[in-house]
Computed example of a mutant assay.
Amino acid sequence: MTEEMIIAGFGGQGVLSMGKIIAYSGIMEDKEVTWFPSYGPEMRGGTANVTVIVSDKRISSPVLHEYDTAIILNQQSLDKFEKAVKPGGTLLYDPNGIVNPPTRTDIRIFKVEGTRESVEMGNPKVFNMIILGGFLKVKPILKLDNVEKGLEKSLPERYHKLIPLNLEAIKRGQEIVETVKEV
């Protein structure tokens, strides 16, 4: 099993954190992983993306030009990365701020109302965990107990009290992910 993915959105959406949690969770499952971030100089509001590879085999390079999965959190990222999903691959997106939804017919497309749901849960900061939950539902490449360990590893200890809320958000994302297009 090898999963090559891009997570892309604006800075402040938890893009890099989501990638780091996936990477640490893969390590907890004795997988080979890479985490390769890319972001602008802005703290919030600039573009941010991260390439993550989780594999049973050695990874030759963290640099990718095509992806098995794209997790897209804004229109700018959708415009840039929709065409980079491999045929038969998966695109998962949050429709908030997406004016022109994905149009490809040769990939699986899912949406997760992460922005809306995080507000309903009373904490917009769990947005990325709701999206992560949707991803893990459609691509169950990691076990939830290892994701919890990944959260423990990636979050500073002062935030460990928030792990139950993050796990609740992941489970909620698994419940609300919607299929838009199957191939």
Rank of each mutant, 00 (worst) to 15 (best):
P164W: 05
K181S: 12
P140S: 02
P140A: 05
A169R: 04
L162M: 13
I141N: 02
L132D: 03
V180A: 04
D145S: 15
R158S: 11
K153Y: 10
K137M: 07
K149A: 15
R172Q: 08
E168C: 09
N128M: 05
N166W: 00
I163G: 04
L151K: 10
H160F: 05
L167H: 06
V138S: 00
Q174K: 14
K181T: 13
K137V: 08
V147S: 02
R158W: 09
K149V: 12
K181V: 07
L167T: 10
G173Q: 06
I163W: 03
Q174S: 08
E148I: 09
L162F: 14
P140L: 04
L151S: 09
V177Y: 00
E175A: 07
S154R: 09
I170P: 04
V180R: 01
K139W: 11
I131S: 00
V138R: 01
G133W: 01
L142W: 10
I141E: 11
L155A: 08
I130E: 01
I130W: 00
S154L: 04
K153H: 12
V183F: 00
E182S: 13
E178D: 12
L142F: 03
I176S: 00
I141G: 06
N128I: 05
L155T: 12
I141Q: 08
A169N: 04
L136A: 03
L167G: 10
E168K: 15
K153A: 14
E168V: 11
K171N: 13
K171D: 10
V147N: 05
T179L: 13
K139S: 14
K139Y: 11
I170L: 02
N146M: 13
V147F: 00
F127K: 11
V177C: 03
L165Q: 15
T179A: 10
K139F: 10
Q174E: 14
L165V: 12
R172P: 09
L165Y: 10
L136P: 05
K143C: 08
P156E: 09
G134A: 01
M129H: 03
L162Q: 12
I170A: 02
L151A: 07
F135G: 06
K149C: 10
L136G: 01
K181H: 14
L165M: 15
Y159A: 12
K143M: 14
E148V: 03
E148P: 01
A169S: 04
E175C: 06
L136H: 03
L136T: 04
L165S: 12
F135R: 07
I131W: 01
E168G: 10
E157Y: 11
E178V: 13
P140I: 08
E157D: 12
I131F: 01
K171A: 12
H160Y: 05
F127V: 14
I130D: 02
L136C: 00
E152I: 15
R172G: 04
R172K: 15
L151N: 09
R172V: 05
L165K: 15
K153Q: 12
L155Y: 09
L167P: 11
E152H: 13
I131N: 02
L136F: 02
E178I: 07
P164D: 08
T179R: 12
V183Y: 02
E157L: 13
